[in-house]
């Protein structure tokens, strides 16, 4: 077995010696928006550390870190993050940035909603339109389930409620192709290039806020964790320079993420993405 592994390593010519790099387990919403392509080169330039991003749903991202396969986590579902730290897998958590969730629907459907709860109740009682659910245990999926539970006590089971088990982009592609509704984070929505005739149907409620947390994986659980580099990464992300870079990242002139590492800005949660 060792020989075979050795053979693979030879052929791959990949040296796994201590390199200045770390693995960041993160969400598709941050990756698909292009945020990492924008900020990571700055971090690497400042510190010489390269960040390898594995982008999956929040649920899977946390699973990867629980297996010891990532050095840091950047996800968006607070209860799961708190559980991760409570179980001793996470050492420290930092507020990094936020945006909000938006309800997306087809332009041609003119159904009017008075409130957010009105949408969910109408959706369930009238079955007027298909709704695409991520169905992949991601942060957005968990938020969507939360909204169904709050406004209608349970998530729908009818045929118009379609659980696709895929990423945000796939859900938006499908909503665009089938004139359906879906819940998206604002970052993915703004940077998505196949909007078709989709538009934002609802946004702005406090419950729709979408904060991202950066968690350092606990080296006491896994001795191989590159906690030194992960710590440097966290320090840079919450530093004025990192925070400024996050705020300056724009797609088509629109800001996608609002830095919130500084505590006093916390109360301005929903003011920023609308800028």
């Amino acid at each position: 077995m060792r020989f075979i592994i050795f053979l693979f390593m030879m052929l791959a010519s990949s040296v796994n010696a201590e390199r200045r790099e770390l693995i960041l387990s993160s969400t598709t919403s941050t990756q698909n928006s292009g945020l990492y392509d924008y900020i990571l080169p700055m971090f690497t330039k400042d510190t010489g550390i390269s960040v390898k991003v594995v982008a999956v749903g929040t649920g899977q991202a946390i699973r990867i870190a629980r297996n010891g396969d990532a050095d840091a986590l950047l996800v968006h579902h607070r209860p799961s993050e708190d559980l991760f730290i409570k179980d001793d897998f996470g050492k420290e958590r930092f507020d990094v940035m936020y945006n909000d969730f938006v309800l997306i629907g087809p332009q041609k459907n003119k159904t009017k909603f008075e409130t957010l709860s009105d949408f969910f109740i109408k959706a369930k009682t009238t079955s007027l339109f298909p709704f695409i659910s991520r169905g992949d245990d991601s942060g957005t999926h968990k938020k969507e389930i939360e909204l169904w539970n709050i406004f209608t006590n349970s998530k729908p089971k009818e045929k118009w409620y379609i659980e696709i088990g895929s990423g945000m982009g796939a859900a938006l592609n499908m909503a665009s192709a089938t004139d359906s509704y879906t819940l998206s984070d604002r970052g993915t929505w703004l940077s998505f290039n196949n909007k078709g005739n989709l538009e934002i149907k609802w946004s702005g409620d406090d419950i729709m806020q979408n904060p991202y947390g950066l968690i350092l994986v606990n080296p006491a659980m896994f001795p191989h964790i590159k906690s030194k580099y992960a710590k440097e990464f966290a320090n840079w992300m919450i530093s004025p320079k990192g925070q400024k870079a996050i705020g300056e990242f724009k797609v088509d002139g629109k800001q996608l993420f609002c830095p919130n590492a500084e505590k006093e800005k916390k109360n301005r949660l929903l003011a920023c993405p609308a800028n």
């Binding site: 598709t28 698909n32 982009g169 592609n173 290039n193 196949n194």
Partner: peptide
């Protein structure tokens, strides 16, 4: 990845 970003 590009498909999921809508860059069909």
């Amino acid at each position: 990845l590009e498909t999921s970003k809508g860059n069909l």
